[in-house]
Amino acid sequence: MTIVIGFEGSANKIGVGIIQDGKVLSNPRRTYITPPGQGFLPSDTARHHRSCVLEVLHEALEEAKIQPKDIDCVAYTKGPGMGAPLVSVAIVARTVAQLWKKPLLGVNHCIGHIEMGRLITGAENPTVLYVSGGNTQVISYSEHRYRIFGETIDIAVGNCLDRFARVLKIPNDPSPGYNIEQMAKKGKKFVELPYTVKGMDVSFSGILSYIEDMAHKMLSSGECTPEDLCFSLQETLFAMLVEITERAMAHCGSQEVLIVGGVGCNVRLQEMMEIMCKERSAKLFATDERFCIDNGAMIAQAGWEMFRSGHMTPLEDSWITQRYRTDEVEVTWRD
């Protein structure tokens, strides 16, 4: 029996999760929500995390009904992500690891998403689409690495959605992407936007500039509604993602797709992916917002796999890093 506690705080969510051999014992989380039209800045986000991390940790232990002495390993997000929030959370992980005399383990955030998705859905060897506010990657496992087949060459798909929400002052509560998704359901007119797939990669910054430029003109002239824009943006962005995912599957002969990351709980993206999967007789795996959106349990789960295969991070090597690619980690826990 192995129990791992995981700390996550690389963006605007702070979460602490506890995993015992594939079972989520607890997974509380708080989100730093900014007013409409504003993004979250590193220092404010770090302050938010510092103010509630201990409460979230307390909740995680209470809900799991375990004592610190029952824990085998303390996992935390080493990166990638925003520096100040990462440091704030890592400091708490280091301190409790020492207080409780437990080994520490730095986890790659992207690997956390993948391992949590595999655990929850039971997908064996899927082509992974990892889509969030900070990352957009198509990933396939081979020879002890999660290999990046395609990715964004500029901003993440979630960043494109978040920034579009700021232009229209769409609220950030519970998340800008969720509110865009709800508005998109009422969209009727498709407004053509640039479509930028470059081989296996995608680009979103041009689409964002384009829609930022034309949104107010088209809205004030009554050519389209905010709902139409939400709908058109989603259809365009998600079509691009489905296209590169399908190409990666064709390359690898893969019959499984797993969607992870915050944007992954968008039901419209899941529907579009499902259509593509049906055509190829492939199977789609996705999770809901509890596990798609950043959370502590995903770090605990990746930590569990790593700890069981012998990984540990000495305190002096426990520095955080804003850049940490998915394929830098040797996956020693898979064949």
Binding site: L54, L57, H58, P68, I91, L99, W100
Partner: peptide, 12 residues
């Protein structure tokens, strides 16, 4: 933050 963590989750 370290001191608050020790107060709440210590002693060692």
């Amino acid at each position: 933050l370290v001191v608050r963590t020790m107060d709440r989750f210590g002693p060692a």
